[in-house]
Deep mutational scan, measured.
Amino acid sequence: KRLCLVCGDIASGYHYGVASCEACKAFFKRTIQGNIEYSCPATNECEITKRRRKSCQACRFMKCLKVGMLKEGVRLD
Rank of each mutant, 00 (worst) to 15 (best):
D77Y: 06
C59M: 03
A42I: 13
K66I: 03
A26F: 04
N44Y: 06
G17A: 10
Q33K: 07
D9I: 05
K50T: 12
Y14P: 06
K29Y: 02
G34C: 07
F61P: 00
E37C: 08
T31D: 02
C7A: 01
V67Q: 04
R53P: 10
E45Q: 13
R60K: 14
C21F: 00
K1N: 13
V6W: 01
V67L: 07
C21Y: 00
S55T: 15
E37N: 03
V67T: 07
G68C: 01
R53I: 14
L76F: 09
K1L: 02
M62T: 14
C46Y: 03
A11E: 09
Q57V: 07
C56E: 03
H15Y: 10
R2E: 09
R51E: 14
A42P: 02
R52Y: 04
R51H: 10
K71L: 08
K54W: 11
K71N: 09
K66R: 11
L76M: 12
R30W: 09
C59P: 02
D77T: 11
M62R: 11
Q57L: 07
F61A: 04
T31C: 05
K1T: 08
E47D: 13
C56I: 02
A26G: 14
D9L: 04
C24D: 15
G34Y: 13
L70Q: 11
C40P: 02
C21V: 01
E37G: 09
T31L: 01
A23Q: 11
L65D: 03
R53V: 12
E37S: 04
C40N: 03
G17F: 03
D77Q: 15
A58C: 05
T49R: 08
C21S: 03
A11I: 05
C4K: 02
K54Q: 15
K63S: 03
C21W: 00
M69G: 02
R2K: 10
L76Y: 12
H15R: 06
L65W: 02
F61L: 12
K1R: 06
K50P: 12
C7P: 02
C7L: 00
M62G: 11
C21P: 02
I36Q: 08
G13S: 03
S55H: 15
K29L: 10
A19W: 06
C59G: 00
R51K: 12
E47V: 09
I48V: 12
S39V: 15
K25C: 15
A42C: 04
S12R: 11
C46I: 00
V74A: 14
G8W: 05
Q33W: 05
D9T: 12
K1V: 06
K54R: 12
M62H: 04
K25A: 15
Q57D: 11
A23Y: 03
A26C: 11
S55I: 15
R51T: 11
V6C: 02
L5E: 07
I48E: 07
V67P: 00
V18H: 07
A19C: 05
Q57P: 10
Y38N: 00
T49E: 12
E22V: 09
S20F: 04
R75C: 14
A42M: 11
G13I: 13
I10L: 09
F27V: 03
G8M: 08
L5P: 05
D77H: 13
K54I: 13
Y14F: 13
F61E: 00
L65C: 11
F27M: 04
Y38I: 05
A42E: 13
I10F: 13
R53L: 13
K54D: 14
K25T: 14
D77P: 14
Q57H: 05
K63G: 03
K71E: 10
K63A: 07
L3Y: 15
D77E: 10
R51M: 14
I36E: 11
